[in-house]
Simulated assay, not measured.
Amino acid sequence: MESPHGAPRGISVTAENFGLKGPRGWAFRGVRVDAEPGALIAVEGPSGTGRTCLLLALTGRMRPTEGHASVGRMRLPKQMAAVRRISALGPVPGVTDLDPALTVQEHIHERALLQRRFGGSLRSLLRPRAERRASTKERIDSALAAAGLDLDVLPKGPRTSVRDLERLEALRLSVALALIGEPRLLGVDDVDLKLSDAERAEAWALLRSVAESGPTVVAVCSEAPEGAVVVSTAAAREEAQNDQDDQSAESGAAGDDSGAEDRVDGNETKGAADAIAETGRA
């Protein structure tokens, strides 16, 4: 999936000191990303370290509370709506779940209708019906090919229900549905969940192929593959916690010396006050 001019459709993703705090504390904090267009970005870490929240924040679906990030020339959180327009989500539990009662063909038809109605320009809606159908078919065929999903090999072909798909087939379907919109940034959650070693290798090969020929891919996983741009939420959380512990220790030390003003000069007193202020802001 390339632009008409032959340039890759991927987009750069950068972040510095990126964090998101919710009602129960920090979902993630201190994240740094530096990825070129068309990169495969692996968000690595154990469950519960804010991996999905980071994925949603980088694709413009959750508002960060600290630091900054850029998707191409678009800044987060200021231009979240613009980032959403050029990004798409593959499988994200609780956000883009496939309906197990629907068939593969029904999911594809539904996504194509939504894309034509809400994702296209007014000019595209005014084109002749035959031209619109041909364009839609081309988008679908391209998305299915990029996702490596061959409908003919499914148990009941296009009429196969989602509940009858293997996990890897469901992943391919979710990716294909996202690619129908021709995004420049694709988010995929839990890539390696409940997959065998062989299936995991196949899933990463799929996403690497998508990134090389189409959008930049951000994929959540427990273990990143070789060659990916790795962003560790566990490491970022540990570093942020260490910083907070250091600040707390400095605050405690300042408190212990608060009654010994005759042993410190004005500069040391000011330094202790600054440490306490920094701890409060953290």
Rank of each mutant, 00 (worst) to 15 (best):
S209K: 07
E202Y: 06
L113T: 09
R63N: 13
D189H: 12
V230N: 02
Q105M: 10
R237H: 11
L54S: 11
R237W: 12
T52K: 01
A254L: 00
L98N: 04
P215M: 04
E138T: 09
L56S: 04
T216Q: 05
E261C: 01
A143F: 00
A282N: 14
C221Y: 01
G22D: 00
R123S: 13
I108Q: 04
D190A: 02
V175G: 00
V33T: 05
P100W: 08
S196G: 11
G38C: 05
L144A: 02
E16G: 11
L149F: 03
G259I: 14
A81K: 09
A101V: 15
G90W: 01
D265Y: 02
E261Y: 01
P64F: 12
T59S: 10
A112Q: 11
P37C: 06
R32G: 14
N17H: 03
G157S: 04
A147S: 08
F18C: 12
D245G: 02
T59W: 12
S196N: 04
R129H: 01
H5S: 14
K270L: 14
G252C: 10
V220H: 07
L193V: 09
M74W: 14
K137H: 13
A249S: 10
A178D: 08
S161K: 07
L55S: 10
K156N: 15
K194Y: 03
V92W: 06
P23V: 01
V188T: 07
R263Y: 09
G90A: 05
D150G: 02
A145E: 02
E212N: 03
R123Y: 06
E2S: 08
S135T: 07
R263V: 11
V153M: 05
R116E: 13
A236Y: 08
I86Y: 00
L98Y: 04
V220Q: 04
V71R: 00
D246T: 05
V162T: 08
D197R: 06
R32L: 12
Q115G: 10
G259D: 15
G10W: 07
P155I: 15
